[in-house]
């Protein structure tokens, strides 16, 4: 019996499906920037949405995070906590620096 690592079952079909989605989600933002057709704001949205989707595809298809066993739940919960910390660090730094800029210039 395989011990439970909470990393999910590995399957060839899932890998191929994930690879296909990742290639598409890489080509879309590169295409949007290399052959500019949209406004800058719309291009930013395309980049961020593609990156988020590819992130989710890799987490589900390659990392195989799931919610089926106790161990898998622990992995997901710690993952969500670290994303929260990551968000606080990045968004917090940007927020502080931009308001600092605003307060010094106005």
């Amino acid at each position: 019996m395989q011990p439970d690592y909470g990393t999910g079952e590995k399957k060839l079909s899932v890998y191929i499906f994930g690879l296909f989605l990742c290639v598409v989600l890489t080509l879309i933002p590169f295409g949007a920037v290399m052959y500019p057709d949209l406004s800058d704001a719309k291009t930013f949205i395309v980049i961020m949405v593609s990156a988020t989707l590819q992130f989710l595809v890799q987490v589900v298809c390659f990392l195989r995070l799931n919610y089926s066993t106790e161990q898998a739940k622990m992995n997901v919960m710690s993952f969500i906590l670290s994303i929260f910390i990551l968000f606080v660090v990045v968004a917090g730094s940007l927020w502080i620096m931009y308001t600092l800029n605003y307060r010094m210039m106005h």
């Binding site: 161990q71 622990m74 990551l86 660090v89 990045v90 917090g92 730094s93 620096m97």
Partner: peptide, 28 residues
């Protein structure tokens, strides 16, 4: 063994936070 793998997973997550601070520095 499950605990070992979970421990390594926690290391990966702390590495994510290292990259988060480098991303924040770059963006600022």
């Amino acid at each position: 063994e499950s605990t070992d793998v979970f421990g390594f997973w926690l290391y990966i997550l702390t590495d994510c936070i290292l990259f988060a601070s480098l991303f924040a520095t770059y963006l600022v």
